[in-house]
């Protein structure tokens, strides 16, 4: 199914509406990717959901990425949204500082966001303001760190039988 929307058209439309909030526009592998100021993300997603032309109303995926060396922009929140009417996909990003990684929740727009946000909190420690039940979901509650952050090891710390030299650590 061919898409009726073009990357350039959608980017221009969003820029016209949210001019100052759009930090950058890119199209890697033919997918419109926009960086948005974190405090405007919720409004933008709400707007593209309700806009009569865009109708980008399906939340495909949301998740975090950790860039420890990027000062002030340590965490990225990445949202993939999809318009089924127009068959158009868009990727939205917001960068958050390590001191206070927080962004508004999407649970009021999409029920699907609930667990994905809990998972992102569980993995990265990103806070979602307004989330109804922001607790760990996959790991046990007693865990005291956020395992997907780059500084933590993948391996189970209790193994003694593995020789590091053979495992490239």
């Amino acid at each position: 199914m061919e898409s009726k929307l073009t990357n350039e058209g959608v980017a221009a439309k969003i820029q016209a509406q949210f001019g100052a909030a759009v930090v950058s526009v890119d199209m890697p592998y033919d997918m419109l990717t926009m960086e948005i100021a974190a405090d405007r993300m919720h409004d933008l997603i709400e707007w593209i959901q309700s806009d009569a032309e865009l109708k980008i109303g399906f939340l495909t995926l949301l998740g975090g990425v950790h860039y420890p060396n990027d000062k002030g922009r340590e965490f990225a929140m990445v949202y993939h949204l999809h318009s089924w009417t127009n068959n158009f996909r868009i990727r939205l990003k917001a960068f958050l500082p390590a001191e206070n990684p927080a962004i508004a929740t999407l649970t009021d727009l999409y029920e699907a966001a609930n667990w994905m946000e809990r998972e992102t909190y569980d993995f990265f420690g990103i806070q979602f303001n307004g989330h109804p039940n922001l607790v760990r979901i996959l790991n046990e509650d007693s865990m005291d760190y956020f395992p997907m952050r780059k500084e933590y090891h993948l391996e189970d710390a209790t193994r003694e039988d593995k020789d590091d030299r053979y495992f490239g650590r």
Partner: peptide, 16 residues
């Protein structure tokens, strides 16, 4: 960065 998806047994299975 790429996002690709296939129709898995349970629906859209995506890889970001």
């Amino acid at each position: 960065e790429v996002y690709h998806c296939v129709e898995g047994g349970n629906g859209e299975l995506g890889y970001y």
